[in-house]
Computed example of a mutant assay.
Amino acid sequence: MPDTSKTPEAEGQVADAYRGNWVDREAPDWTRPYLRLSRADRPIGTWLLLLPCWWGVALAAASTGFRWIDIWIVIGCGIGAWLMRGAGCSWNDITDREIDAGVARTRSRPIPSGQVTVEHAVLWMVIQSLVAFLILITFNGAAIAMGVASLGLVAIYPFAKRFTYWPQVFLGLAFNWGALLAWTAHTGSLGWPAVFLYLSGICWTIFYDTIYAHQDKEDDALIGVKSTALLFGDQTPLRLQQFGIASVVLMTLAVLGALTPEGRTAVIVGLIGVAGFGAHMYWQLRSLNTEDGDTCLKLFRANRDAGLIPVLMFGLAILA
């Protein structure tokens, strides 16, 4: 008979990772703790970091015309998002190791569970950051400066929940920086449409990460960690509706600012993408049960599909 005494966490797997993910199934044993530290077994975070980058480059290309460098921007942002998400998560887990040890969902992470030492985690973070920097320097000078400027936000984020009920704002500031960077990588300078995209992404991040934070609200309240889930409480659906509307309005301004001079068809295609994005968030609100952790995790992960809708339609607007 199979041995059922081993839990996934006892074998080193992380509690909220997909069961049967490629890290746990196929990665060499010695790499697994480091890949888990980078959240390679939980790819949704990479998607949520990457999608604003793709919004930025797709809308910029729809505005000023496609360039062959855009293909490398798309690929480079994909690789860079994986690396910088891994580096950011390593930093997050280094700073949060004592907090993670006190929360049921996170105590199985590599540092609190003893799979990775703090020293090795720091080294792994540095390696990922350096490789990501090599990709960044293939972009133009303005984009390189934008990328370097984002490091301050990445460094501050893990500490936000210690002093504010709005750590999701700090996450949004860091996670959506790619909209500014990718726009700049295409155009060579920052523009108002990119700023509106950035602000839209911040509101979206507050939306999805508040849903995510409802999984931990009891533990967070006990250990003194703050979040918008605790701040909003029973008013969460209303607050999320407000941030969802704000995100849609700001993305609409981005589309109108970028595409209006280029023709009606491109604007219509872009606005269809915004409408689909908003419709997906509306579906999430209709499905939300903040007392059901499994539902919260499912809806949080569904935001990959929400963010892909504008990517697809902005891409089609290039052809319009």
Rank of each mutant, 00 (worst) to 15 (best):
T210A: 02
V311Q: 05
A174R: 11
Q235A: 13
R304G: 06
M251N: 03
T64H: 14
D220E: 08
L49A: 07
E98H: 15
V248L: 12
L197F: 00
R32K: 15
S5N: 14
T210M: 02
G278C: 13
M84S: 09
A279M: 14
A306Y: 09
L153Q: 01
F66K: 01
G188D: 10
N21Y: 04
D41M: 02
G45D: 00
Y198W: 08
L35T: 14
A40H: 10
N176G: 07
V116H: 08
L136H: 08
V23M: 08
I79Q: 04
S108Y: 04
Q115P: 08
E291V: 00
L190M: 13
F66N: 01
V267Y: 05
L35M: 15
W124K: 00
M1Q: 08
Y198P: 06
G191M: 14
G141T: 12
S63V: 04
Q241E: 14
N289R: 09
P310I: 11
L231G: 05
N92V: 09
R85V: 02
W72G: 04
G263M: 05
G244K: 07
D3K: 01
L151W: 14
A27E: 11
F170E: 01
R286T: 11
A121S: 15
F314V: 05
L316P: 09
K6N: 13
L59P: 04
C296Y: 03
Q115E: 10
T64N: 11
G188Y: 12
T31E: 11
I309Q: 06
L190A: 01
W72F: 14
E9K: 00
D24N: 13
I73V: 15
I94W: 09
E26P: 00
E9T: 13
I318A: 11
F243I: 09
L312S: 02
F159D: 00
Y157E: 10
V14R: 02
P310T: 06
L271N: 05
P261C: 03
W166L: 07
I127D: 00
A279F: 13
F133E: 09
P158H: 06
A302I: 04
A58W: 11
Y282H: 08
R304F: 03
L319Q: 06
V126Q: 11
F175W: 14
D29E: 13
M84V: 04
I79F: 14
